[in-house]
């Protein structure tokens, strides 16, 4: 009998040992809880709100698709969504193009103090996002650094007015703001590449350019894909940068959502735009990943 009581007292422990997955769930439970409280429930609330319309009196609601219909009837809204996707795609591409050489340099040509370099890259993130956007305003503005610099050099007579308050300014500002999110994943994937693979490519007759194209680049693709997504997804919804440096032509979907929740005081419409934007982003990402897979199969 005694042995069986021993067994019971140990059962929690042995259950633990026998099913390691339980331990995993236990460890993940705080995160799961947080996800439910801070992510899943707000999302359900948002989705619910998007189907509501006001019926006149303040506490009576009706379920309907009217908000979605309203969105797709307004070409201005649809165009803004398309432009947001377009701008974010460009931002992701520009950011990755600028980030790749930096990540490559740190991974292959910095031998000491790599950590210091990585910290220096994240240094701009130690100041507020708003401040960084404002500094771009100072750089690109009518009396900004670039214009006054060029005037001082006598290269231009009048300040250039096409460098601020347009799509290019938004792309430039966002690309800078998200650089670290592209550099870090690309750096990690480059760092993981066994240097003897590159030597093997040289050994088999390929010069530096071809070794890069045939070995380094394909092996760093996971990092590039991660960087593209990490930059693309959050920038679609950005509204601070377009508001500050975008002008009327640089407006993005985030600005519409913000005004629906704010100035227009139409939360159901704001919620519907949010949901539409979310679905569009998901769709775009799926399309992108499918495309990448296809390209990989064709190339390899």
């Amino acid at each position: 009998m005694k042995s069986s009581t021993d067994k019971t007292s140990l059962s929690a422990m042995s259950l633990w040992r026998r099913y390691p997955a339980l331990k995993g769930y236990a460890l993940a439970s705080p995160a799961i809880l947080l996800m439910i409280v801070a992510l899943v429930s707000p999302f359900l609330l948002l989705a619910g709100t998007s189907f509501k319309i006001e019926t006149g009196s303040s506490d009576e609601w009706m379920l309907s698709l009217a908000n979605y219909e309203f969105f797709f009837e307004k070409s201005h809204y649809v165009n803004t969504l398309v432009r947001s996707i377009f701008i974010s795609t460009l931002v992701a591409l520009v950011t990755v193009l600028l980030a790749y050489p930096a990540a490559y340099f740190i991974a292959f040509h910095v031998h000491e103090n790599k950590m210091l370099w990585l910290i220096m890259i994240t240094l701009p993130f130690w100041t507020s996002y708003l401040l960084r956007v404002f500094s771009w305003k100072l750089i690109l503005g009518y009396n900004g650094f670039i214009n006054s610099g060029l005037m001082w050099l006598d290269l231009i007579k009048q300040p250039l007015d096409f460098i601020l308050y347009n799509t290019n300014a938004v792309i430039l500002t966002l690309a800078h703001a998200w650089a670290a999110f592209a550099i870090l994943p690309i750096y990690v994937s480059l760092q993981k590449i066994d240097k003897s693979l590159i030597e093997a490519a040289h050994d088999l007759g390929e010069n530096k350019i071809y070794s890069f194209l045939r070995v380094t680049l394909p092996l760093s693709m996971p990092g590039v894909v991660a960087a593209l997504l990490l930059v693309f997804i959050p920038t679609v919804g950005d509204y601070v940068t377009p508001k500050l440096v975008g002008g009327p032509k640089g407006l993005m979907i985030g600005n519409l959502i913000q005004s629906a929740f704010g100035r227009l005081d139409n939360w159901p419409l704001g919620a519907a735009i949010s949901i539409i934007s979310m679905i569009t982003v998901t769709f775009a990402v799926c399309l992108f990943l499918l495309g990448i897979n296809r390209v990989r199969k064709v190339l390899i």
């Binding site: 066994d194 003897s196 693979l197 030597e199 093997a200 490519a201 040289h202 050994d203 088999l204 007759g205 390929e206 010069n207 045939r214 070995v215 394909p218 092996l219 390899i300």
Partner: peptide, 28 residues
Amino acid sequence: PYQRPVNMVFQNYAIFPHLNVFQNIAFG
């Protein structure tokens, strides 16, 4: 190295992980 009439078998073999056996052998 890419202009020498010399080839090497590396200590860890340095097989390209993203290519199959055929593509590895045909690499050069």
